[in-house]
């Protein structure tokens, strides 16, 4: 197991009152596996990724990457891609990617691996461009290159394509698969796009909210590349949807 989540609980205190955002999240992830997480907005998906990355600390429970307990960010273990590319507007594509490099490397070696990663995400010719000169999809590619450059054992993606248009999104999903075929990176992908979850994931984790718990884990045993128009795909889509909407019904009744 490359990643183990053990009974993760996260409680926020907001002016005296306590808000339980995550309860008893446990999950084992195999090396090279892609896990999709879907769930209503506010159910704690981002909080969970922050805990896995070491940016946030669980109130109870532990995260292990390669049997090492995560207590603070460690780019060799876990990389994270946010919904916004978070590139520095004052730095070129090259310089932004260089920011990801942690090790002290000779200049020539640095230049070479930056070039390699620019190739990997298909941005040849844009080395000297500023982020503002790139489209949203291209910016997200730079962000992916910046994180991949350290070869983290686990890659977390928090709604990485949520801000992109449908066409670019499908393109980026292809891109992620391509990278996965090369690197066999273990990934946790949070998305609100059920098709995306099934298209990329080996398993789809459905979460429900208040508190955020794992409601159901649906295995996706379709060979890659997957066909979105395929009958099995449609069946899985229906299965995920039904988990989702059952959950929605429950929570809306809760409010009434």
């Amino acid at each position: 197991m490359i990643l183990q989540l053990k009974n993760i609980k996260r409680v926020f205190s907001i002016n005296q009152s306590k808000l339980e955002v995550l309860r008893d999240i446990s999950l084992d992830v195999k090396t090279g596996e892609i896990i999709s997480i879907v769930g209503a907005s506010g159910c704690g998906k981002s909080t969970l990724l922050k805990i896995i990355s070491g940016l946030d600390t669980a109130t109870a429970g532990e995260v292990y990457v390669d049997n090492k307990k995560i207590v603070k960010p460690s780019q060799k273990e876990v990389g994270i891609i946010f919904q916004e590319p978070r590139l520095f507007p004052w730095s070129t594509v090259e310089k932004n990617i260089e920011f990801g490099i942690s090790a002290k490397l000779p200049k020539i070696k640095k230049k070479r691996i930056i070039e390699e990663h620019i190739n990997l995400v298909g941005l040849n010719g844009f080395e000297k461009a500023l982020p503002s000169q790139l489209s949203g999809g291209m910016q997200q590619r730079v962000s992916i290159a910046r994180t991949l450059i350290n070869r983290p054992k686990v890659l977390l993606l928090d709604e990485p394509f949520g801000a992109l248009d449908a066409f670019t999104r499908i393109n980026m999903q292809q891109e992620v698969l391509k990278i996965w075929q090369f690197e066999k990176t273990t990934m946790i992908l949070v998305t609100h796009d059920i098709d995306e979850a099934i298209y990329l994931g080996d398993r789809v984790v459905v979460m429900s909210s208040k508190p955020g718990v794992i409601k159901k884990i649906i295995p996706v045993e379709l060979p890659r590349p997957r066909d979105r128009t395929d009958g099995d795909f449609a069946y899985l889509r229906k299965k995920v949807y039904s988990e989702f909407f059952e959950n929605q019904k429950v929570s809306s009744e809760y409010y009434i």
Partner: peptide, 21 residues
């Protein structure tokens, strides 16, 4: 603050954060 979070993820030291961000 999102940039500072990026710096934490990449484990940058205080001086780097000051100069680069």
């Amino acid at each position: 603050p999102k940039f500072l979070e990026v710096a934490r993820v990449f484990e940058k030291n205080k001086l780097k954060i000051l100069l680069k961000i």
